[in-house]
Nucleic acid binder design. Structure first.
Lengths: 206, 206
DNA sequence: GTCTATAGGGTGATAGAC
DNA sequence: GTCTATCACCCTATAGAC
């Protein structure tokens, strides 16, 4: 139960939680209302419809996913090495605070509720900007012989996979069969803030 | 539309496709029936309920996910190096043929339709077996100083992330912003069959 | 702004004819 | 085994009282 907020904020927080955990279709407006501790009718009063509420949560989540990084990348030195440390650190911090976020993004990709292609979509622009900035520095470093030549997609996919995948798999890891606690998991993730940049550098010199 | 199969098989194939792509809640039995080219009533005639049908598809998908590997691991030499090449190769082949499979597993983790914890669940047993076999060889190699000492979870998460994550992200990569074709994507994945084992080895010696 | 009550539409499942 | 027609339920959204 979400407390000490306006009704509108309580609904938004509850919606964010449930949409992120269960996806659009499996989340009922009744559950959101109950989680928020308000009446069902109030949800429609503030947000007009389930879809509108979902879109709002979606934009806030995705902005979280890329916002910090896009903004700060502009101010960071233009070498892959520096950007690497920075991105890994920020992403892992963000995921430790929002561990379900990857699931939300994955839900989006399936649901069709989000036209990621739309040119003037600010999130789309952010992703494109992030990708281009990164590609540029990577290609630049390859040109200078600093790193082994390979398709830059490998590098981006590897880095993102090393960062994000453990959070996706966390439910298996922390299950009875996985046999580690939430605290152990979080400690391991923090440990990865140092390890991932080392690993990525090692991979790029094979 | 699925053709040239018995009604029962057509329904199963359609259900597998839709459940995998959209998840349990967002898939309507009517859509499955239409995709299969049969009547809605027939679905319940053969499978009793939407949930029962889902469970069937689920077991077949998960068995695919772990079955081949568990079986063949038993017959492979007991060193991490050999198992590494083998697993990467088999997984990527399997994912190239079933690119939506990771989404299905992710849906499962959210939906709660699957008690992965259940001890006598054959899929659970397979996963446990796979994990233990792997842990054993990794710890053994660490003991002998063949690889750097670190939490074995890092190694398993890294390997699985490098294999699976690109398929999860494939929809972004192959979108307009991602800017690569399906064929290019598949070629890159095949390239990774050689690269991933090299990367994993490099990471373990940092 | 917040509630109760209910309309309106969709979904899973089944009865019953063939 | 396969179909049509329909039931019973659940869900979103809104009307209207306070």
């Amino acid at each position: 139960m979400v407390r000490d907020l306006s009704a509108e904020e309580k609904i938004k927080a509850a919606a964010k939680k449930l949409f992120t955990q269960k996806g659009f279709a499996a989340t009922r407006t009744r559950d959101i209302a109950e989680e928020a501790g308000i009446n069902l009718a109030l949800l429609n009063y503030y947000f007009r419809s389930k879809s509108k509420l979902f879109e709002l949560v979606m934009y806030e989540n995705l902005s979280l996913f890329i916002g910090v990084i896009v903004e700060n990348l502009k101010n960071s030195p233009n070498s892959f090495d520096n950007q690497l440390d920075f991105i890994v650190d920020k992403y892992i911090d963000m995921l430790l605070e929002n561990p379900d976020l990857p699931f939300f993004v994955l839900n989006l990709l399936q649901s069709g509720h989000f036209e990621i292609e739309h040119k003037d979509n600010p999130v789309f622009k952010g992703i494109t900007e992030l990708r281009n900035s990164f590609l540029e520095t990577i290609l630049n470093d390859m040109e200078q012989g600093k790193v082994k030549k390979m398709h830059p997609l490998h590098i981006i996919a590897n880095m993102m996979g090393l960062i994000i995948f453990p959070f996706i798999a966390s439910k298996v890891l922390m299950s009875r069969s996985g046999n580690i606690s939430r605290k152990e998991f979080e400690d391991l993730m923090r440990e990865r803030k140092k390890l991932i940049p080392e690993w990525v550098r090692a991979m790029m010199q094979v």
